[in-house]
Measured scan of single mutants.
Amino acid sequence: GKMTGIVKWFNADKGFGFITPDDGSKDVFVHFSAIQNDGYKSSDEGQKVSFTIESGAKGPAAGNVTSL
């Protein structure tokens, strides 16, 4: 299901970062391709987002990331 969290950091040059879930669980990796914004796929530190957890090649990753 959908979770909410805060972007801990995001490196636009490398195209990835981490989200800290609101439920206190482990930080989740986020790749720019998962960000659902139109246009520039980046996110700012401290941005509140909703997301799903997908199982990626390197473990859990955020999917369907949407700014709230």
Rank of each mutant, 00 (worst) to 15 (best):
S55Y: 15
K58S: 09
D23M: 04
G5W: 03
Q36D: 11
G5M: 04
A62L: 00
P60Q: 09
Q36Y: 10
G15A: 03
G17E: 01
S50N: 04
P60T: 10
E45R: 15
N64G: 07
A34R: 05
S50V: 08
V65M: 03
T4S: 07
G1H: 12
D13H: 12
F10S: 00
K58N: 11
F29T: 01
S25E: 05
A62G: 02
T20F: 04
V65N: 02
Q36L: 13
V28G: 00
G46M: 09
K8I: 07
K8W: 04
V7Y: 03
A57T: 12
N37K: 12
S55H: 14
D27V: 06
V30W: 08
F51A: 02
K41M: 12
D38A: 13
K26N: 10
S33L: 08
T66M: 10
M3S: 06
Y40N: 09
Q36A: 11
I53P: 03
N37L: 12
A61H: 14
V30Y: 15
S42W: 15
S25M: 04
F10A: 02
V7M: 12
D44A: 15
Y40T: 10
K48A: 10
T20N: 03
T52R: 05
S33Y: 06
A12Y: 14
E54F: 11
N64A: 07
G5A: 02
D22C: 14
I53H: 03
S43C: 15
A34Q: 12
E45A: 15
F29D: 03
F29G: 00
K8C: 09
I19L: 05
E45H: 14
F16I: 06
D23Y: 05
I6V: 13
D27Y: 02
V65C: 03
T66Q: 12
F32C: 13
G24P: 01
Q36G: 08
D38C: 14
K48D: 03
A62M: 02
G39P: 10
V28Q: 00
K14E: 05
Y40G: 11
M3C: 11
N64T: 06
Q36T: 11
I19V: 03
V49D: 01
F10L: 04
V28D: 00
S50L: 08
D23F: 06
S55T: 13
W9P: 00
V28C: 05
K41H: 13
F10D: 02
V49S: 00
Q36M: 14
K8F: 06
G46V: 08
F51T: 01
K14N: 06
S50E: 10
G56D: 08
A62F: 02
A12D: 08
V65E: 01
T66L: 09
